[in-house]
Structures are given as C-alpha cells and as structure tokens.
Amino acid sequence: MSLYLLCLLLFCVGFYGILRKRNLVKMIIGLGIMEYSMNLFFVLLGYRMQGRSPIEAMDQNVLNMVDPLPQALVLTSIIIGLGVTALVISIAIRIYDKYGTFDITKINKLRG
C-alpha cells in the first residue's frame, strides 16, 4: 500500500510542477514526472508477491510470474510520453526564439 501512496506523492509533485512553476522547462519536467508516476503505478498493479519476471527461458518451468500485460502497456505509454515530450520541448525552444523568455507570465499574446 505504501508503494501506491508513494506513486500518488510523485504524481502530486509532477502536478505541482505543472500548476505552480512559471518556467516552461520546469513545467515540461513536471509533466514527465507525472507520466512516470502513472507508469510506475500501472507496473505495480501487475506485481504479485514473490513474482518473477515474465520471461520464458529454455529448460525452465516458469511459475508465479508477474502480470506481463501492464509491462507491455507501460512500454507503449513511455513511447507516447517520449513523443509528447519531444514535441513540447521543440515548441518551447521555438517560443524562446519568439519571446526571448521561458517565463509563462510574460508569454501572453493571447487573451480574451
């Protein structure tokens, strides 16, 4: 249970970074922390006590493996996170080009 609570804590750290930080790069780091906390949570869901990694090996009868499905799904989710992070970072670099700052309070051409 305490592991799940630590995941929640990590999630809150990431969420705090997105909501409260004014620097674009720190916001992106917050987003990354959030994504990793939820990946961690999903992998933990598939764990069972004394489980071993779900790899089939020669001449071995594998019993008691952890659930392999969350691991495959989390791999997909990590790839998606990679894509989003790359895109957002390139947008942030272009924003720095145009505005000359990473401060979110100074980036305010849009309003209404």
Binding site: F15, I18, L24, M27, L31, M34, E35, V84, L87, V88, I91, A92, R94, I95, K98, Y99, I107, N108, K109, L110
Partner: peptide, 18 residues
C-alpha cells in the same frame, strides 16, 4: 510557427497531456 500559435499549442499540449 508564429508566436501566438506556439503559445496556444504549448498550452493545449500541456493540458491535453494532463
């Protein structure tokens, strides 16, 4: 890739990812 578009896209991307 003008200033307003990048700003809007950044906002959209962060909120969409959350």
């Amino acid at each position: 890739t003008e200033a307003e578009e990048l700003e809007a896209s950044f906002k959209y991307a962060i909120m969409g990812s959350v």
